[in-house]
Design a binder for these strands. Sequence first.
DNA 1: GTGGCTGCAAACACTTTGCATTTTT
DNA 2: AAAAATGCAAAGTGTTTGCAGCCAC
Lengths: 171, 171
Amino acid sequence: MSNLHAAGHDLDAGSAAVDSDTPVEKFREFLEIRGDKLTEPRRVVVRHIFHSHKHFDADELVRDLHDAGKAVSRSTVYRTLRLLVEAGLLRELRLTNRTAFEHDYGYPQHDHLHCTSCNRIVEFRNEQVKELRDAVSRAHGFRASGHRFLITGICASCSRSHTPRRRLDLI
Amino acid sequence: MSNLHAAGHDLDAGSAAVDSDTPVEKFREFLEIRGDKLTEPRRVVVRHIFHSHKHFDADELVRDLHDAGKAVSRSTVYRTLRLLVEAGLLRELRLTNRTAFEHDYGYPQHDHLHCTSCNRIVEFRNEQVKELRDAVSRAHGFRASGHRFLITGICASCSRSHTPRRRLDLI
DNA sequence: GTGGCTGCAAACACTTTGCATTTTT
DNA sequence: AAAAATGCAAAGTGTTTGCAGCCAC
């Protein structure tokens, strides 16, 4: 889990350090161009999202913010999420009927393995995916701007534990 | 286009011919095993779906059936769609917030290009996708049962005609 | 006949919107 | 001060469910 966050992602944090590459700054630039405003609720949402979350959905975010004593109304959360996607800071993931989000800024290109048993999502990185996408696009006169490669199946730990007719940890 | 439907897929049709490989038959087998029943509304839904549709959503299906004078209640349509997915006859596609479906029976493995401008979906086939999926799964101890590779971008005809090129890299 | 269906309407779950008030530039 | 954002509650979507009567096996 934590290994995915390994290298230099010291976003936000209390440090009053250089602040021009934080998600909040990026968001401000985006809003500025459109003549929109960076408000406190928006700042709170963005900071929270890029502070720790990986994949999350609107409801989770509303609840987390509330529990952290930083409550932001559900409407504002939804409105802000929409903006963050437009701004390219977040990406939508539609595995189920509720939209999940993940970081798209300062985050390396990757794809997902979705375990249909425990419902967990594992990320993986593989250069060939993009190569393949570009090759296919080229062959179709398509100008690719992105892709989603989702592999569904049973993860290692689930196929170990849920396998019927097999003793669990006895050996 | 038509090449995708190339070989022997004379499904439904009035011909009282051999009927053991139609989607309806497959569905019956599936239902039988579970001790469930093949009813007229279910037959109507399955026949309609495999008669012409490619990608469709529940609402479209309800409307089409209604317009064809073969109305089936919305609930039954939803219930039947769920069963067809379980039966492996249909596959879910979640590009937007409404679930879309496509044939999964008697249809070759393929993936999609989604044009975000005209919203059209184009299919493509490429063996390497599956190879890549299997390689990645293997590397993660994952037992893959399926995958979804979706390439988003602008299709040839849109990038020719429209040119309102959206700026995505403002930030 | 029985257990599973169907249709209807009502319930749900997720997301969006109208509006009066507050905040940002 | 003007323009835009917030929060609330109310309205939308899309999908599921409870139930009385109906139908396939």
